[in-house]
Nucleic acid binder design. Structure first.
Length: 388
RNA sequence: GGGGAUGUAGUCCAAUGGUACGACACCUGCCUCCAGAGCAGGUAAUGGCUGUUCGAAUCAGUCCGUCCCCA
């Protein structure tokens, strides 16, 4: 009946988040686990946008003891970034601010080349744009590293090669389906490299991977490899989120490649207002009289959902909006206007922080240093074992 | 390397030499507080080149892409 598909390459239909956990074998976040995160607890946790995980406790326990922890959350640079892409990065910043976590951000340009009909020139243009948007989040350059697969291949490839030997085609096929080309068949090894990289650079420690549930297979594959590798690493922990609702409603995720237009990080206030007003599915009634009498349904109202997921910081305001909407006092158009303004407020801040200037200068403080690379990369010609 | 199949709009697909069909998606209008639903309208395609023909999506040649079998 409620047919849906969730894989790293496809999200379709009305997603049943509970059934997904059964399918994937992840655990729903308990109230207690929630309390183990730094206070005040981030609203993405409080409101159960991040609603499940694997091995979260080891991460929070280590963090509570003040030990080294890291966060990995990435980006596939196949287009401009929209609202649905950005909240994991703001969550990562919260963990960095509160825990001093290292934040590693892999950009999988190779994977997008393998899976999309795009040239590397196009992908790299998006990569540069996306980097500016990611850095607009405000990460600490001392503790944040952007890793671009093809640009940092000196580090990524040797590790991926080691891990790839542990990965059978059958395992890849079982997890992702038959790869359409050998590049994608190899890519899970690269993905696993991303998740282990903080430990390879900084030594064994717990890593948390906050991502949308469709990316969970990557974590599972990596955990399998980490378990059998002689690398001294812990299995990365996962923190899994629901999808930010699409403007059109339904259960899928916001997308730029899809039909429903998403709200881009570059949209100005007028554009946001127009997109929300014209496209957001509402929980309102058919006309004003019916709405005043019976009230609206915030649980299906996309404007309300966007506020609840991320864009309204105040729990009190959120509760009041829901109550007023249900009572019929608040009309759909009014709720949309409010939501659009909160989103536009957020975007204005984001756009103001977006770094200008030559991209090489902008990204430099966030690239792996030579010393960090040397810790990971084998030194083929630097050794002395070539004696006759 | 050999053999076979296939290529039509964003997607799926029809048309055996004669106006390129339809669906979904998208856009516009009506209706709605808004969106959706509903109704009315609209945009959009024959992989490239050459040839045969009055006329080619259709036949031939060639190139390109994709898939399958064999090596």
């Amino acid at each position: 009946m409620d047919d849906f598909t969730v894989t790293p390459y496809t999200v379709e239909g009305d997603v049943d988040y509970d059934r997904l956990l059964d399918q994937f074998g992840a655990d729903r976040l308990t109230d207690e686990q929630l309390q183990n995160f730094p206070h005040p607890t981030h609203r993405l946790l409080r409101r159960r946008v991040f609603y499940a995980g694997r091995d979260v406790d080891r991460f929070t326990a280590a963090a509570a003891r003040g030990e080294t922890v890291s966060v990995v959350t990435g980006r596939g640079p196949s287009g401009p970034m929209h609202l649905g892409h950005v909240y994991p990065f703001y969550f990562a910043k919260y963990l960095q601010d509160e825990l001093g976590a290292y934040v590693y951000i892999p950009l999988s340009d190779d994977e997008k080349y393998f899976s999309k009909d795009l040239t590397f020139d196009e992908i790299h243009e998006y990569t540069r744009q996306n980097v500016r948007d990611i850095l607009a989040v405000g990460f600490d350059p001392e503790r944040t590293r952007l890793v671009v697969d093809t640009a940092d291949a000196d580090v990524v490839y040797p590790v991926a090669a080691e891990l790839a030997k542990e990965l059978t085609p059958a395992a890849v096929e079982a997890t992702y389906g038959t790869p359409p080309n050998v590049g994608l068949g190899f890519y899970p090894a690269v993905q696993a490299t991303h998740l282990l990289l903080p430990q390879l650079v900084h030594g064994r420690h717990p890593t948390l991977v906050p991502i949308a549930v469709d990316q969970d297979p990557h974590v599972r594959v990596c955990r399998d490899i980490a378990a059998k590798q002689r690398h001294d690493v812990e299995k990365p922990a996962a923190l899994l989120s629901r999808f930010l609702p699409r403007l059109g409603g339904g259960g899928g995720k916001m997308s730029t490649s899809d039909d429903a237009p998403g709200i881009l990080l570059s949209d100005d206030r007028e554009t946001v207002r127009e997109k929300v007003q014209r496209h957001a599915y509402s929980g309102g009634r058919d006309d004003v009289d019916a709405h005043r009498e019976h009230g609206g349904d915030p649980t299906v109202d996309v404007a309300y959902q966007l506020l609840a997921y991320f864009f309204e910081e105040s729990d009190e305001t959120l509760d009041r909006l829901a109550a007023d909407y249900r009572s019929g006092e608040l009309l759909s158009g009014e709720l949309k206007a409010y939501a659009a303004d909160r989103i536009a407020d957020f975007l204005e801040g984001h756009q103001r922080r977006r770094p200008e200037g030559p991209i090489a200068d902008v990204v430099e403080p966030y690239r792996l240093t030579e010393a960090e690379r040397a810790r990971v990369r084998p030194d083929v010609f630097g050794g002395e074992s070539d004696r006759e």
